[in-house]
Nucleic acid binder design. Sequence first.
RNA 1: GGAGAGGUGGCCGAGCGGCUGAAGGCGCUCCCCUGCUAAGGGAGUAAUGGGUUUAUAGCCUAUUCGAGGGUUCGAAUCCCUCUCUCUCCA
Length: 422
Amino acid sequence: MISIKNIRDNPQLVQDSVVKKGYEGSIVEINSIDKKYRLITKNLEESRAKKNVVSQQVAESKRNGFNADDKIAEMKKLGESIKSLEEELNIIKNHLKIKLYEIPNLPHVSVPDGESEKDNVTIREWGLKPDFDFQVKTHQDLGRELKLIDFERGAKISGSGFPLYTGQGAKLERMLINSMIDHHIDKYDFSEIFPPVLILEESMRTTGQLPKFKEDMYLSELDNLYLAPTAEVPVTNIHRDEIILESDLPINYVAYSPCFRRESGSYGKDTRGLLRLHQFNKVEMVKFVKPEDSYAALEELVLQAESILQLLGLTYRVIELCSGDLSFSAAKCYDIEIWSPGEKQWLEVSSCSNFEDFQSRRGKIRYRSAVDKKVNLLHTLNGSGLATPRLMVALLETYQTKSGSIIFSDSAAEFLGMKEIK
RNA sequence: GGAGAGGUGGCCGAGCGGCUGAAGGCGCUCCCCUGCUAAGGGAGUAAUGGGUUUAUAGCCUAUUCGAGGGUUCGAAUCCCUCUCUCUCCA
């Protein structure tokens, strides 16, 4: 949620800014609802102030044994008008809230303008696309031949988009998750979290999945619980409705969770093999930082995600998303894409975003300043570190040999605790 | 699933219809005292919305004692529903 004050003070600026992110509503309209809201609030408060005064007078009369019938009659009347004002205010307040929750975050000034992914900017590349002196196989071929992934049986159990990892494939998946978590803990200063993955509506609202993206998620209707699309949701909500001491910041969490996505809008796009799934595994980093530190934290976050790819020896590039490609909640975002020799395309394995105070305003995640003891919204960030399916794709395809086996580089082997798959 | 107990400020904890935005304590901040340390004395110390304002300063005002309803002229206090925590039973 963006600040209502911002909407009041710079409606046109906000409008121009959110249009870049595909927002179709009218900020001016929201502004006029807000004006009405404030007017009624003022009326209501004046009535309540009067009520408080008269109520005191009644109490005093009673205490001194005087009759207060006329005052009580006045209170009765006041009470009725307060009630009707409250009802009116409630309707407007809800209306306003719905509108505010639908406004995307504003892009940071440094974000390049653009409409779609074609306007994204490549920041840097690492590694070279590998050459092969034989016919390269795709991860699907390799997965089938080496009995690492059983797509057919996965589909038998849960439908398409739910891969079944078997044997060495299952082990590789597990080692990836494990090693990435350990890496973040050992090398950087992350605390480990193992979150629940069935999520309350409220938590989904904090991070911005709700109300707009309900159809992207799985929902257990009987319980009104959503399946987490990313560990970002439970982990960010750890501190919902809390006031954190400044001395405890920054807080850095790393968490593994399975991720569940309906992918309702992406039929037929990159659906081969592990490229796009309904369930996948991901290690996620989440940071809670002071506002003035958040952009430095974002750069750091990207480097932390990249460090894994360097150890794994996978070719990648870092992309800065343009305003039009930025997600609903993000103010700025870098994607990391790795090279898939089999698919011959770049695959996104990480998305590192600064949400500024967008999520913390929704979830009331605040901190108390050590200097003036004031309470302020903090900034939240998160980044994948990393999502496993496409990592698996690149690992298998990059380290395949002529004989059809997989032999990892020394560095990757050390990271994974596995040297060879055959 | 059944029976109880309970959710109050940063924390602990009192209050059980009007004088309570909330005693007392801890913590924290500032000041005083003590040549360090330990101890002592004093003052201050909620969040959020609205108004005013150059101001996130100050001032005015409203709301908030798990959440939502209700009773009442008036609710932290009484009633109902929900929720969470704890104890006991199945």
